[in-house]
Each structure stands twice: as C-alpha cells, then as structure tokens.
Design a protein around this nucleic acid. Structure first.
Lengths: 187, 187
DNA sequence: TGTACATCAGTGAACGCGCGTTCACTGATGTAC
DNA sequence: TGTACATCAGTGAACGCGCGTTCACTGATGTAC
C-alpha cells in the first residue's frame, strides 16, 4: 500500500510532532520507537523509512519543539505576559506542550552532538528573543544580554524544579510564584 | 562468606555513595543495577539484600547527594564564594560531584513519590541555606524568601543549561558567567 | 493518453541485547546453650 | 569459654520483558515508454 509523496511527508511530520511532545513529557529514554509511531497512527516497522535512528528523530524533535515554543513566545504582547505564561501552573502540568529547555536540559548533555546542537540553537534563539523585549535600563549596570541570560536561566530552573517537587508540596507553587514576582520586579 | 555487621553497613554505604554520584552523572535510567554494585566493588546479586528496589536506592541516593552538597555549601565563606563555586567550569564538568538539583530536576518528576519527596526536602534545605546568607536589604521590595527562591532557580537553570550546550559552543561558558555576574549584582 | 514495471511507505514478525529482579548456593559471622 | 547451629552478605546463573533495529512482504503510486 504505497502512499502519495505528499501524504508521506505529512505522515513524517506527524511523527516529528508526536516526538516533540512525547520526548518533552517523558524524556528521550522514556519513549519507545513503537510508541512514537503509534502516537502518529502507525506501526513501528516504518520508522526507518523516515529516520536514520531514534537519535536522528530526537534532534528533529528538539528543533520542532523550540520552533513551536518560539511561536508561543511571539503571541505574547510583552515580556511580563510571556513570563506569566511560562511560569504558570498550566505550563507545569503540561511539559509536553511547554518549554523544551526546561523539560530536556538534564538529558541533553548525554545525547548525540546533533541533539545538543539543536538544543543550543533553540536556546540561543530563546535568549535573543528575550533580550529584544528587554527594556534598555542602563541603570542596572548589567548588559541586556547578561540580563536576558539570567532571566532565561531563572525561568528554566524554576519550571524544571517546580515539576520535580511533589504536586502536593507547597514548594512547587512557590517556585513558580516567587520566581515570577522576582523576575517581574527585575525588569 | 558472611561478613561483619559493621562491614555490611559500610558496604551498603559504599553503594549509596556510588549511586549518589552515578545517578547525578548519568541519570536514574542511565545507570544499571549491576553498574551500581560494580562501582562499589560487588556483583549485582547482593543488591536486594540491601535495597527493596532500584527506586528505593534512588531515593536514598538523592538524600545522600543533597547532604554532600550541603556540606560543600557550609564550606563557603559567603554567598558570592558559594555562587562562584556553583557556577564554575569545574561544576559543569563534574555533574556527579555537583548539585543534584541541577543534574536530576528533569527526571525527578517522573520518579516515585519517595524520590520526589527526598528531592523536595533537599531543595528546601538549599533554599533555606541561601536565604540565611542573604543580606537583609529591604530596598529590593521583595522578601528574602522570594529572592532566595529566585537565586536558587537561576543557579540550577544556569548549570543545567550550561551542561546541555555543546562543550565547544560559547553558550556554555556564557550561561555560567552571565548568570554569575547577574546573581552577584543582585545581592 | 495508456500500459508495464520499478519504487517505496507501511506492516508485522523476528533479531540480539541489556535491563531489573529472583534464586540456589557458599561459608564466615552471630547466637543459643 | 567452647560447641553447634542458624543467619545472611555476597556470588553468579537464570528469568521474563521491553527495547532499537532489521527484514521479507504488500500493493498503490510514480515513472519510462
């Protein structure tokens, strides 16, 4: 049952999209190839018609996740609104649909160079986009770039730690709220 | 070849110590039970004489790693010195000997409740210890607690992201250096 | 435009491997007398 | 203090399972004429 070239490309995209979500939600090692294919509606055997390896898909999935994240960023009116979305309870609850940096930072260091490059490129864009929206404010005695890096590191750390804390513990909420207050204050 | 009770306790501690280092370096899923035992000088079969499961060891290892981290913190004369050690190239290079929060945050959310509780307890202590050392400085308009939470989130995020970035890329160094400058500036 | 053949996306069984865990066994230590 | 037996830390083979990857096969699409 051969398929239209257009259809095949569309199917491939579905797998990448599923991977972008599942890898963020459960980690690279936490999702099997057959699950990735099943999530896109296929059986596992066809996987290697599209990708050289699970790792190759991982690199594409990281790219795709950062691209999606960038689109969400563009939708925010300004930096405070972006921060509120980023450090929200909804973001904590849905790692598969939120920032790939917060979800995957810990694991990426152990992945192939392709994955690490894709991750670094996405992160760089994230920092650049925050820097652009940062008010100049020379009073701080810090470059905008330094402030952007600090802001991104703080956001990523807060979200990742909030997810690690048990749902019941007050720490999870506090990490998001205190980090948000402090970040907004710093702008 | 039965062994002294004292010796057995010592052997058990060796396994926990090895796990505390290996889990930080390679993640929970990245280290097999036989490797954990081998790192402590044993064969894998005896594992279940000491631990109910790999997961039970993970919880103890997280505790142990945070305890070790706390000891390192105590050694620092003040907050700036602590920050410089935390955000150093050496820390980036040796995840197994550095902060468990930065190394494991991403994975902990998918672990058992025991592991998550141990993680949250260690993190809480880390925040409390930073708060204690924070200069009062009411001028900030933020509680010390908020500032401590923000500082810890920023440190953890910066270290985790710096490890994810490729060794060759300038991003890795920048994440550590810019975050350090900004954090010191903020004190 | 119509025909004949090659291509290749998707299927499902199979592979080799490493994993967490179990188990029978060993023999020095711990304990009861 | 000395003897006899139970205990149990450590060993290494074995288990069942899920994993990433390979492969022969199918049949509609793509292509050459």
């Amino acid at each position: 049952m051969r398929i239209t070239k257009v259809q095949a490309k569309e199917n491939r995209d579905r797998v990448v999209a599923a991977a972008a979500e599942l890898f963020r939600a459960r980690g690279f090692e936490g999702v099997a190839v057959n699950e990735l294919m099943a999530a896109a509606g296929f059986t596992h055997g066809g996987f290697y018609n599209h990708f050289a390896s699970k790792d190759a898909l991982a690199a594409e999935a990281v790219e795709s996740a950062f691209r999606q994240m960038a689109a969400v960023r563009e939708r925010a009116a300004d930096l405070p609104q972006m921060l509120r979305g980023y450090l929200s309870k909804a973001a904590r609850r849905a790692p598969g649909k939120s920032c790939p940096a917060a979800a995957l930072a810990g694991e990426v260091g152990r992945q192939s160079d392709e994955v690490r490059q894709a991750f670094a490129a996405g992160l760089e864009q994230m920092i650049a986009s925050v820097e652009e929206r940062l008010p100049p404010g020379g009073r701080h005695g810090l470059s905008r770039r330094d402030r952007a890096v600090r802001l991104v590191a703080g956001m990523v750390g807060a979200l990742a730690l909030a997810r690690a804390a048990p749902d019941s513990s007050p720490l999870a909420g506090e990490l998001l709220e205190a980090s948000l207050r402090a970040a907004l204050h710093e702008l």
